[in-house]
């Protein structure tokens, strides 16, 4: 979803992708790996373990501190702000996908929340004007244009990012107007934005992730399936694609 992006995430994604392709991902795929479109599965599994450690020893403790220090209302305001600041990118992707109605909604949300919502910290667009929120990103735009996701990839820190979506994240950084506004503390803005997005997201998904981990026979494969299904649902903007369902 746009808004996760920032200059740092783009650089990280590109670097990790390069490193992976040039080196560590060189394994001989088994027929199962090919069938799952996951030729780098052994490397991906190792990266997932690494990400699990980062999550356990760094992310979760700081999420705990975030919840302890910042009250519910403050966290909601931060969430609203992060969502709002990503809307220009969402808007461009709406337009690139030819989704005029959704582009209009995004434009309206940004205008309302930036003004009446005091810089985006409040969300009158949803509550008073009933304009629903949605996410878009360049990975989805590419998918709408017919680009396949490519082999499954998990990147360090970032998580599941098949090439199409990783490339999309990089493009989103360039589509984001804040990238092109020059000010002294730009690095801190990028780092802070990414970090608070991480806290916001992880805080919201904590119990869901725990539930998935507890019920999984193979957490890696579960995550892969969930990621792909979620992405397909996002790409179709929630319209059910029932023709692709398997026979029972």
């Amino acid at each position: 979803m746009a808004g996760i992006g920032g200059r740092d995430i783009g650089i990280l994604a590109a670097a990790a992708l390069l490193a992976c392709w040039l080196g560590g991902c060189a394994t001989t795929p088994t027929p199962e790996m090919r069938a799952a479109n996951d030729p780098f599965e052994p490397t991906n599994r190792e990266t997932l373990k690494l990400n699990g450690k980062i999550d356990k020893y760094f992310v979760i403790p700081t999420v705990g501190a975030y919840f302890f220090i910042v009250p519910d209302g403050g966290r909601r305001a931060i969430h609203n702000f992060l969502q709002n600041v990503s809307l220009p990118t969402v808007f461009v992707n709406d337009v690139l996908q030819g989704e005029t109605k959704r582009a209009g909604q995004t434009f309206a949300r940004f205008t309302i929340n930036t003004t009446l919502g005091l810089g985006g910290f409040f969300d009158p667009a949803t509550k008073k004007f009933h304009v629903p929120a949605h996410g878009e990103d360049f990975g989805q735009t590419l998918a709408v244009w017919g680009v396949g996701e490519g082999p499954y990839l998990i990147l360090p820190v970032i998580g599941p990012q098949p090439p199409r979506d990783a490339f999309g994240q990089v493009v989103d950084v360039f589509l984001d107007p804040t990238t092109h506004i020059h000010f002294k503390q730009h690095l801190w803005w990028d780092v802070g934005r990414y970090y608070f997005t991480l806290l916001d997201l992880r805080g919201q998904t904590y119990s869901t992730v725990q539930g998935i981990q507890r019920s999984s026979v193979d957490y890696y494969a579960s995550l892969r399936s969930l990621y792909r299904q979620m992405r397909n649902n996002e790409i179709s903007n929630g319209k059910p694609e029932t023709e692709n369902l398997p026979e029972f």
Binding site: M1, A2, I4, L48, N51, G52, I54, D55, V59, V63, G135, D137, G139, I154, V157, I158, G159, P160, D165, L198, L199, L201, R202, Q204, T205, S207, T208, V209, G211, Y219, L223, L226, Y227, M230, R231, N233, E234
Partner: peptide, 19 residues
């Protein structure tokens, strides 16, 4: 796993999904 292992797109699943 990292927080972002479920991005982009776990948000629709968060909280309410379990319910």
């Amino acid at each position: 796993m990292s927080a972002t292992d479920l991005t982009p797109g776990i948000l629709p699943l968060a909280r309410r999904a379990i319910l």
